[in-house]
C-alpha cells in the first residue's frame, strides 16, 4: 500500500458541463478535476466526446451549460469560485471561468495551451518560426507593439535573442535542431507531432492539452513521446491528454477519466480504471446486463 499523500491542488475543474449540437448531445453533465503536477488522461471509445471536451476547455466551443474553472497560479477555491461566478466576470485573482472566455484569452491568461488531433502547424513557416510565433506575447511587448522593433532597438534585439534561445532549447529537447530551418510542413509525421507540442510549450502554459499525441507514431517514437511528456510534467506543467493507445495511458498517466457517449463512466488512478468492468464493457461493447452479471460475480 502506498502511503496516502495529500492530494495536490486542483488546477482545472469541469463541473456539470454539457454540449449539444442541435439534437445531438456530445457531452452530457460531465464533471472532473485536473490536479496540478498530474498527467490526466481522458479516454473513451471513438465518438465518446473527448475532443468536444477539449474544444470546450480551450474555448473553441462554448459549452451549452456547465462551469469550467482554471487557477493557473494557485488552487481552485470553491468559495472564491462561487463568488466569481455570481459576479458575472470572466476571471480575477488567479481564477478564470473558461466558458466565459474567448479561445485566445484562455491560452493567454488562463495559460492553457493545446495541440490538435490533425496537426495544425504553420506548414509554410520553418520549425523555428513556429516556435517563435508561439512567443508572440513577450516579443510583442518587447517590440513595443512593433515601434521599438521597427527602429531595431537593442531591447527588442535582446528579447528576440531570448526567444530564439528558448526555441533552440525546445528544438534540442525534441531532437529537431538540425531541421530548425526547414518548413514545418516538410517534416515527417512524428517530428510534426513533437514540434506541435514544443510550440504549445513555447506559449508558456500551466496546463498543456494534447489531443491524441501518440496517434500514428511507431513504438520507438511512442516511447520517446512518453519520456517527453513525463519531462514536461516534471518541469512543472500539468498535462491533460486524450489518448487511444492504452499502453501510453497506463504507463504515464496519474489520473484517468473515462467517457462513453458523452458521459463520465469512471474516474480514478490507472490501476482502478483497468479493473473497472464498466470501462471494459464500454471498450468491448458488452451489453449492460452482462456487465451487471459480471459485477455480481465479482461482488462489486
Amino acid at each position: 500500500m502506498a502511503p496516502p499523500q495529500a492530494p495536490s491542488p486542483t488546477l482545472l475543474r469541469v463541473e456539470r458541463m454539457s454540449m449539444r449540437f442541435g439534437g445531438l448531445t456530445a457531452v452530457d453533465d460531465l464533471s472532473f478535476d485536473v490536479r496540478r503536477g498530474d498527467i490526466t488522461a481522458l479516454i473513451g471509445p471513438n465518438g465518446a466526446g473527448k475532443t468536444t471536451v477539449f474544444n470546450c476547455i480551450t474555448g473553441f466551443y462554448k459549452p451549452t451549460s456547465g462551469r469550467i474553472s482554471m487557477a493557473p497560479d494557485g488552487a481552485i477555491d470553491s468559495a472564491a469560485l462561487d463568488a466569481l461566478t455570481r459576479s458575472g466576470a470572466r476571471g480575477g485573482e488567479g481564477l478564470h471561468l473558461l466558458e466565459r472566455m474567448p479561445d485566445h484569452e484562455i491560452a493567454r491568461d488562463a495559460r492553457v495551451a493545446r495541440t490538435f488531433q490533425n496537426i495544425r502547424l504553420f506548414a509554410g513557416m520553418t520549425a523555428l518560426e513556429n516556435l517563435i510565433v508561439a512567443q508572440h506575447r513577450p516579443l510583442m511587448r518587447a517590440s513595443a507593439f512593433s515601434l521599438a522593433g521597427l527602429i531595431g532597438a537593442p531591447s527588442y534585439r535582446a528579447a528576440e535573442q531570448a526567444a530564439r534561445d528558448k526555441a533552440r532549447d525546445w528544438l534540442d529537447r525534441i531532437g529537431l535542431t538540425a531541421r530548425a530551418d526547414d518548413p514545418a510542413g516538410a517534416l515527417p509525421y512524428g517530428d510534426q507531432r513533437r514540434l506541435e507540442i514544443a510550440r504549445a510549450m513555447c506559449a508558456d502554459p500551466v496546463l498543456l492539452c494534447l489531443d491524441e499525441p501518440a496517434a500514428g507514431l511507431n513504438p520507438r517514437e511512442s516511447a520517446e513521446l512518453n519520456a517527453l511528456l513525463r519531462s514536461i510534467r516534471d518541469d512543472g506543467t500539468s498535462l491533460l491528454l486524450i489518448e487511444h493507445d492504452m499502453s501510453v495511458v497506463m504507463e504515464i498517466s496519474d489520473h484517468v477519466v473515462v467517457l462513453d457517449y458523452g458521459r463520465k463512466i469512471a474516474d480514478g488512478a490507472p490501476a482502478e480504471i483497468r479493473a473497472d468492468p464498466s470501462v471494459i464493457a464500454a471498450y468491448l461493447g458488452v451489453p449492460d446486463e452482462e456487465v451487471a452479471a459480471v459485477e455480481q460475480e465479482i461482488g462489486a
Binding site: T58, G59, F60, D103, H104, A107, A113, R114, F116, R120, L121, F122, A123, G124, M125, E129, I132, V133, A134, H136, L139, M140, S143, F145, S146, G149, R199, A200, A203
Partner: peptide, 19 residues
C-alpha cells in the same frame, strides 16, 4: 512579431488562437 503573426494567421488561424 506582428509580421510573423500575420503569416501565421494566413497559415492557420485556429492554431494562432490556440497560442
Amino acid at each position: 512579431p506582428i509580421g510573423r503573426a500575420w503569416e501565421a494567421l494566413r497559415e492557420d488561424e485556429i492554431a494562432c488562437r490556440s497560442l
